[in-house]
Design a protein around this nucleic acid. Structure first.
Lengths: 259, 259
DNA sequence: CGCCGTCTTGACGAATCTCAAATAAAGTGG
DNA sequence: CCACTTTATTTGAGATTCGTCAAGACGGCG
């Protein structure tokens, strides 16, 4: 049986020349039914007890990741989806002509790997930004469940189309907004997502470097740094390294809205 | 029964305040089996005669669109997917804060509406760029076929995940490439897609205005115009209004590849 | 304590946008 | 089919935003 293997990459090597160091597998009995993130992760439309029973067969096991570990790599055989249980991951997309970009910043309850669904290989790299744990949802179980339960089937479609819409929003943001608007938008989005997960909406820790944030927003690290400093000066936020406190959400929203 | 109605919008009104003028419905008996675009549009992995029979039930009818007609609008109830039979469409995404972008330029054989799949409403507007005809694939037929035929199910997943990957590529292009690279990339992509459909790879007509192209690439119309002129001066392409002839693909490719 | 990766800040330059005006093309009604 | 209106395109000059290069500060870790 093909299992997901998480490999750790040494900090200096970015993507090329990585060797598997430590396959980390945890075989915790996992159940979505008792998971606190279920609302966010896999909400079934109706509280159907049958569906709930089906759900418990979805997660095969969990994988522990340490900061920098690679969950999957572009070109890897698509074996299933991954749900973040705690921690955070980034996904990095690469083009044939060498350019590279942080395409996503993923929080607990979010599903990774959707871009490989239906294709046989993953199209990006997923890397842990801190010590994390993910639930492994094997492809065959997903397909079985989808076939048996129309509600779950629809949930899968929703997952995929939602990813399309989110990608478009990112494109739109990157191509129509100025740097300050992109960053404000990024901070507000993070705030909302943390809040939805029960964390503080006004204070959180950025798990990405300035460079990674810049890559995600189509900016250079110096621009990100300068803007964070400026937002701080203007009293919009409070920056202490990677700890961010939002002081004036309204002003941030207005900044995004200004043409 | 809810059917797709194509409405025509007057040129001056862009998106807001549009009224249905002329619901155009054609009830041509349609079959994928005999369609010349099948390879591109709905390729089934194996030439399975059973699958082919199923396929013929997929298209309910076809709709004729005139230039400027709206196929569906953001917020419209999602009733199914649309396959372009001839002609071309653009999709326009809007954010709540008012910014708007041409998110796609769609050619014959391409499927529209995937971003609404699994959600109950469409998330963007689809507008005909010229007189066109699209096949209507109603949701219930898609779901039925997907449930009965695993190969078709996989095809659907592939369609959705492919859209995710394509969106990411666009984001990456917009956020990492310079204007000239984006435009060169756009022209080469169009050329490839026309070729795949049996049209000339070296000469084609742009169905979008400079402004729409700019919107799609995250550029202003003046920049698009200037660059087209420059490519023409440099002998890379020949521009006559919206007719484009690619003269030096290699140079265009190299332009895209240069860091 | 010193190294290394990360972050901050400044000065300068290049890419792209904005504004403006002229020209070309397309659509409209007689 | 033509004159007229509207829209689309081209091109220039100047302004602006953001990237580039560079130097130093900060902070975690061995």
């Amino acid at each position: 049986m093909q299992v997901a293997t998480a490999v750790r990459i040494s900090p200096q090597s970015s993507t090329a020349n990585v060797r598997p160091i430590r396959p980390v597998l945890h075989d915790v009995k996992a159940s979505c039914g008792t998971c606190s993130l279920r609302r966010i992760c896999m909400p079934v439309e109706i509280g159907d007890p049958d569906a709930e029973a089906l759900f418990d067969s979805l997660v095969a096991h969990r994988v522990r990741l340490r900061k920098g570990d690679v969950l999957f790599r572009a070109g890897d055989r698509f074996a299933g989806l991954y749900a973040i249980r705690f921690g955070s991951c980034k996904t990095v997309s690469t083009t044939d002509d060498g350019s590279e970009q942080v395409s996503g910043y993923h929080l607990p309850g979010e599903i990774l790997g959707v871009e490989g669904f239906g294709i046989d290989t993953h199209a990006c790299n997923a890397i842990a930004l801190e010590d994390s744990e993910v639930c492994v949802l094997p492809l065959d179980r997903i397909e079985k469940l989808a076939h048996e339960d129309p509600a779950f089937q629809r949930r899968m479609y929703k997952l995929l189309s939602g990813a399309i819409v989110r990608e478009r929003t990112v494109t739109l943001m990157v191509s129509t907004m100025r740097a300050e608007q992109r960053l404000a938008s990024f901070l507000l989005d993070l705030s909302n997502r943390y809040q939805a997960r029960g964390y503080s909406a006004s204070e959180f820790v950025l798990r990405m470097t300035r460079e990674e944030i810049g890559s995600h927003l189509g900016l250079k690290l110096e621009t990100v740094s300068r803007l964070l400093s400026r937002f701080d000066d203007e009293g919009l936020i409070d920056v202490s390294g990677r700890i961010i406190r939002l002081l004036d959400r309204l002003a941030l929203s207005q900044l995004v809205a200004t043409s």
